[in-house]
Amino acid sequence: MGSLMKRAFLHFVVLLHRVISSVPMSSRGADRAPLILPSSPTVDAVALEERASALAKRSLKKVAKIAGLRLAIRMMDLTTLEGKDTPGKVRALCSKALRPLDTDHTIGPCAAICVYPNFVSVAKLALAGSSVAVASVATAFPSGQSPLAIKLDDARRAVDFGADEIDMVIDRGAMLAGETAKVFDEIAATKEACGQAHLKVILETGELGSYDVIRRASDLAMLAGADFIKTSTGKIQPAATPPVTLLMLEAIRDYYYATGRRIGMKPAGGVRTSKQALHYLVIVKETLGDDWLDPSLFRFGASALLNDVLMQLEKERTGAYQASDDFSKD
């Protein structure tokens, strides 16, 4: 009997997930009736960090290293999010994404380039006909501290400009103030605003203060309709770290167990070296397995990482350590 009730309850939770994520904001009413979200499991920081660093000890040589690095390139969202960005800079980035290494066309292309909404059209043009997607940050990136209407408008316009993917930011203030329903509603509304575009939800983990809150935010984002969850804007330190990424992958795994839906993961900021990238891939491989070892479900948000990976690949190919000036800066 107890087992029956337990199953009924689990079934209810799963249903709730589905109902919540399918109900658009508008139909729930503006008064935001109190929303009871399933609770998130707690996280032990020490054991989490221990596991993440244990995975850093995997030894990747030769074939495994080369395959991993090539995969990492195909997973990159090559990013420029500067006040000084120009069409010229964005076009240069696009050509780098298309053809990371001019001497070896079997390398790449990157998964996407990631820019501000103003440069979506430029990028779209530069990448036309390729598999490289255009991702745009939106929703008052990076702080998210604007009225919802403006944030939704930001997202809609980016989609209108042609963005394939929207990288939104959550309201960290609301999250820390305990207004989880507000966070949930804004994500759900943004998802609706995105239409066909894929939604990546940036938690800005460096501002959330603890693994427990990061886990909670990950669960909220997935329940609210995120296609990807993403660690950071790149504007806040710390950005992506191995334990945070592991934690978010575990949240994705639990969501997958409960619903069968595959959510993607994107660590962003702070991943600069080949060694780090391989470490992240190991974490993915040993947490979510083969399916997630694919650009459709795992991305790196990075800019400096690409050249380091290229240097390592060249080193493996030639046997000689490379000089940084041998590789184009963008």
């Binding site: 074939v63 495994a64 290293k65 997958y256 167990y257 979510l288 083969d290």
Partner: peptide, 23 residues
């Protein structure tokens, strides 16, 4: 019944998509 349902659930595949070389 429970076990049957467990089998039906989509599993996670830990395969050789990207394997570690001997070290």
């Amino acid at each position: 019944i429970e076990k049957k349902r467990d089998r039906e659930k989509p599993g996670i595949v830990f395969g050789n998509q990207w394997d570690y070389a001997p070290a």
